[in-house]
Amino acid sequence: MALDALNLVPGMLTTRDAVRAAYGGRTQRGISSSGTTPNVFLYSDHGSAAEHGYDFDGWAEDDEVYHYTGEGPSGDQELVDGNKAILEHANPKKPRALHVFVGEGRKGSSGPVIQRYIGEFTLDLDEPYLERWNVGQDGRDRKVFVFRLRPVADARFHRVVKDRTPKATENTRIKLPAKATSARLIAPEQNKTPETSYEAQGGTRKVTRWESGLSDAFLAHLEGLGHDVGRYQLTVKGSRAPLYTDLYDATDDVLYEAKSKHDRPYVRMAVGQILDYQRHIGSDSVRLGIVLPAEPEEDVRAYTEGLGIHLVIQNGDKFEGYPLS
């Protein structure tokens, strides 16, 4: 929507106080919902991000999506308050525009933070947010929401190289719950089903998650045996986005990668992924396994076994090749 009161133009500099005086909203916290105008103002600041335990904000590598981290400095973030305002900003009963600002440092030694206006955004329909994990202000691992924002169609916006998601400065690993996911669709309650749907331009789309179904079935099998199962978020120095493993069985010290098909290209992809994960987990003892929906051809099995990678094959409600020899 037009913001004529302050004449906000992408690239211009202003302050939170000026925005609040013109449109309402809060002067504290990164997400400021106006109570007097249909706007939500999002403030991103790399300078203070580390202080709050995260710095996932910025243009993604394809420069088409802007990542914005939800609010909540400690404990798992929840889709309430400001986070809920972002998630539901396009609700037809109460639509609100999302406006993003980036901090440009203070005016003087003690003056207000200068805010550079990037433009108006809308939440991505296909993948509205990612789940990321980091250490909160209380020193404990926690889940955060990273919203995926796209510039409003045909609207002006300001994009510069320094606004890209920052590269990691060190290697880290965080063990996650087994059911953690790095991405969600619009209907999060359907995220664990083999098939889900969401409303997008052009009608309803369906997404089939065969790999998720196989992974979930194997997870249920392991948990039924009383195993401690999780997964890892791996941050690699110099990378802008973390990596996520599939299942890690802490009881047997085995890292698994599930693939939806047993053909050679899928198995080769799984081999590359799991060997890369192993490097960054940094454990010499961890064993490797690939979970497939059917037996691959003989040479493919010889290929994986030659690398010391075990194959586990789903056969109805059983998994052949488990436990690993």
Score class of each variant (00 low, 15 high):
Met1Arg: 11
Asp4Tyr: 12
Ala5Phe: 10
Ala5Ile: 10
Asn7His: 13
Leu8Met: 13
Pro10Met: 04
Thr14Ser: 13
Thr14Tyr: 08
Thr15Glu: 05
Ala18Thr: 09
Ala18Leu: 14
Tyr23Ala: 07
Thr27Arg: 14
Ser32Met: 08
Ser33Asp: 11
Ser34Gly: 10
Tyr43Ile: 14
Gly47Pro: 00
Ser48Lys: 14
Ser48Ile: 13
Ala49Val: 07
His52Leu: 14
Tyr54His: 13
Asp57Pro: 06
Gly72Asp: 13
Pro73His: 07
Ser74Glu: 14
Gly75Thr: 07
Gln77Phe: 08
Asp81Gly: 08
Lys84Leu: 14
Ala85Thr: 11
His89Ala: 09
Ala90Gly: 08
Lys93Ala: 10
Lys94Phe: 14
Arg96Phe: 03
Arg96Leu: 06
Ala97Arg: 09
Pro112Asn: 00
Arg116Gln: 14
Tyr117Met: 04
Glu120His: 09
Phe121Lys: 01
Leu125Gly: 03
Pro128Tyr: 01
Leu130Arg: 15
Leu130Ala: 04
Glu131Met: 05
Glu131Phe: 05
Arg132Asn: 02
Gln137Lys: 15
Asp138Phe: 05
Asp138Lys: 02
Asp138Tyr: 03
Leu149Ala: 01
Arg156Pro: 02
Arg156Trp: 01
His158Thr: 00
Arg159Thr: 01
Arg159Ser: 00
Ala168Pro: 00
Ala168Ser: 14
Thr169His: 04
Lys179Met: 13
Thr181Ser: 15
Ala183Leu: 09
Ala183Gln: 09
Arg184Gly: 00
Leu185Ala: 12
Ile186Gly: 03
Ile186Cys: 06
Asn191Thr: 09
Thr193Ala: 12
Pro194Phe: 07
Glu199Val: 10
Gln201Asn: 13
Gly202Glu: 08
Gly203Trp: 14
Arg209Phe: 12
Glu211Met: 06
Gly213Lys: 11
Leu214Tyr: 09
Leu214Cys: 09
Ser215Asn: 15
Ser215Glu: 15
Ala217Met: 12
Leu219Lys: 10
Ala220Ser: 13
Ala220Thr: 14
Glu223Asn: 06
Glu223Gln: 11
Asp228Lys: 10
Asp228Ile: 02
Arg231Ile: 04
Gln233Pro: 03
Lys237Tyr: 07
Ser239Phe: 11
Ser239Lys: 13
Pro242Phe: 06
Pro242Ser: 09
Thr245Glu: 09
Tyr248His: 12
Tyr248Ile: 02
Asp249Trp: 03
Asp249Ile: 02
Ala250Gly: 08
Ala250Arg: 09
Thr251Arg: 07
Asp253His: 09
Asp253Gln: 08
Val254Asn: 08
Leu255Ala: 05
Lys259Cys: 06
His262Ser: 15
Arg264Met: 11
Arg268Glu: 15
Arg268Cys: 06
Ala270Gln: 03
Ile274Trp: 05
Asp276Arg: 14
Tyr277Ile: 02
His280Ile: 04
His280Met: 07
Ile281His: 08
Ser285Ile: 08
Ile290Asp: 06
Val291Ile: 12
Pro293Gln: 06
Val300Leu: 00
Val300Pro: 03
Val300Met: 01
Arg301Glu: 15
Ala302Asp: 15
Leu307Val: 08
His310Lys: 13
Val312Gly: 04
Val312Ala: 05
Asn315Val: 15
Glu320Gly: 02
Gly321Glu: 06
Leu324His: 11
